[in-house]
Amino acid sequence: MKKRRQELWNLFLAFFRIGMFTFGGGFAMLPLIEREVIDRHGWADRDEILDIYALAQSVPGAIGVNTAIFIGKRLYGFWGAIAGLIGIVTPSVMIILIIAYFFTQIQSIELISRAFGGIRAAVVGLIAAAAVRIGKGAVKDTFGFCVALGACILSVSGFIHVIWVMILGGVSGYLYYGRKKERLDQ
């Protein structure tokens, strides 16, 4: 019992460190995850980690969070999944709570509001770069390009909810790629 509590605590600490020191989230987390999970604790080897990432990317949610839950679950079952999850989100929650608490006061300082003028413009550039990066990996053919363009137009027009755009994308993928595969199989 005592040993098990120690194991869960180590798991929590490993993902706490990963959550604490990865800025920007997503793929920025992967090198740190590998250091903790493979090099430091030997919870998985290089091949297994690729499988873990594949799963983490194919279910909803942030990749880092999904990886923490999956590794926790594989090692110690349900409570392992909980320990990994709480470990990875605790640092961000603490830091953001502090920032959110002081945000209004900080924003009324003139220097800070000018700095945020620069940050806002930069965020637009960052998101545009992210769209291109995601697009490069995701758009494989003309059909994919049309889907991306259609999704972009639909979301900017604001006619339908983003969730419906995603469902439409999934359905069109099934109709196009799924059926094509069936035809090839016959």
Binding site: V139, F145, G170
Partner: peptide
């Protein structure tokens, strides 16, 4: 095939 349709959709949405 569903994911093959969702991935470009996400790219378009982020754009």
């Amino acid at each position: 095939s569903i994911f093959a349709g969702i991935r470009p959709t996400v790219a378009g949405l982020v754009g």
